[in-house]
């Protein structure tokens, strides 16, 4: 597979504290890659190493097949979790300054800024000072500055914090659009619903170690438990339950329904198939609900972290 970013055996310690322990991660080109983990797991350290803010003690990071070098900052756009802007500087001046630091010429930066400001409908903020703007407004500018130099790798650390749902959606669509245009996105967050929505690949870091990574779909398959949500209209719920118990493992279930029915999560043993369960159920009553329980990113996150 074609990977844009490859980190091999990266370790980093701060004094006695080991922030990253032999972490290897590959980020496929053109994907949205979710970097997940509890607070203090080492995500930010890893992101800072990619941005060359911190140097790894051991291990190497490759961008486009070559070891990271100082000049690579122009190919990376980074929106840190702790972010802000110079409060007393004007929006336009500030955006120009930050884009020039990323290697754009002044003319080019101006042209692109105009495009983005028009696109996000913030054109009339150019001469305002940051301190006159709301937090959400400042975040929009920050987003523009992050993507302005059209980097091939975009790194967003909790990009939606501080945005209202409307703007969060706007930014989400912009990120996906950038990916469609060829950018690769690393996306670090605690918000599992946005991981479900956006990520193709994920890696889970826990206590400085990578404990899980791969395609989100593959991981979900690996975490499937052959469990199905079942709704059945039957006369005698107890009788159904007792006969099911002989063949399957029953778990409580709480899906929403309009029928007054028998509800259970049913796990099928390895030897059986979903068809066996359906056949069994149709003999007992009228089947109204049959859905495979797919593990959510949230479930996988909690389960994996707890198991470690």
């Amino acid at each position: 597979m074609d990977n844009l970013l490859v980190a091999t055996n990266v370790s980093k310690s701060f004094g006695e504290f080991r922030a990253l322990n032999d972490v290897s991660i590959s980020v496929p080109r053109g994907s949205v890659f979710g970097l997940l983990g509890p607070n203090g797991a080492g995500k930010t350290t890893f992101i800072r190493i990619i941005n060359q803010i911190t140097m790894p003690d051991t291990g190497t990071v490759f961008l486009d097949g070559e070891a990271l070098k100082p000049d690579d900052i122009r190919h990376i756009g980074y929106l840190p979790e702790e972010r802000g802007l110079y409060k007393s500087m004007k929006v336009g001046e500030q955006a120009l300054y930050l884009s020039q630091l990323k290697g754009l010429s002044k003319q080019e930066a101006k042209k692109r800024l105009k495009y983005w400001f028009d696109r996000l409908e913030i054109g009339d903020w150019w001469n305002k000072k940051i301190q006159e703007l709301s937090k959400g407004m400042a975040q929009k500018i920050q987003f523009v500055v992050t993507v302005l130099h059209e980097p091939k790798l975009l790194i967003f650390d909790e990009p939606f914090s501080g945005f209202d749902p409307i703007n969060a959606n706007l930014i989400k669509d912009e990120i996906l659009r950038l990916r469609d245009n060829g950018a690769t996105v690393i996306f670090s967050t605690h918000r599992m619903e946005s991981v479900e929505e956006m990520c193709d690949h994920i890696a889970l870091i826990h206590e400085s170690n990578k404990i899980l990574d791969g395609k989100l779909l593959d991981i979900k398959r690996a975490y499937r438990s052959n469990t199905y949500e079942v709704g059945l209209i039957a006369e005698d719920h107890t009788a159904v339950e007792n006969s099911l118990k002989e063949h399957f493992k029953l778990l409580p279930s709480d899906f929403k329904t309009i029928n007054d029915e028998f509800q259970r999560n049913i796990r099928i043993p390895e030897s059986a198939s979903a068809n066996d369960l359906v056949n069994f159920l149709t003999q007992k009553g009228q089947l109204t609900h049959f859905v495979e329980v797919v593990p959510s990113a949230n479930d996988i996150f909690i389960q994996t972290v707890q198991n470690n």
């Binding site: 900052i73 840190p80 802007l85 110079y86």
Partner: peptide, 12 residues
């Protein structure tokens, strides 16, 4: 103002 991390991802 928390701008520092933005800046030092561009300059040493």
């Amino acid at each position: 103002s928390r701008i520092i991390e933005v800046i030092i991802s561009s300059v040493k």
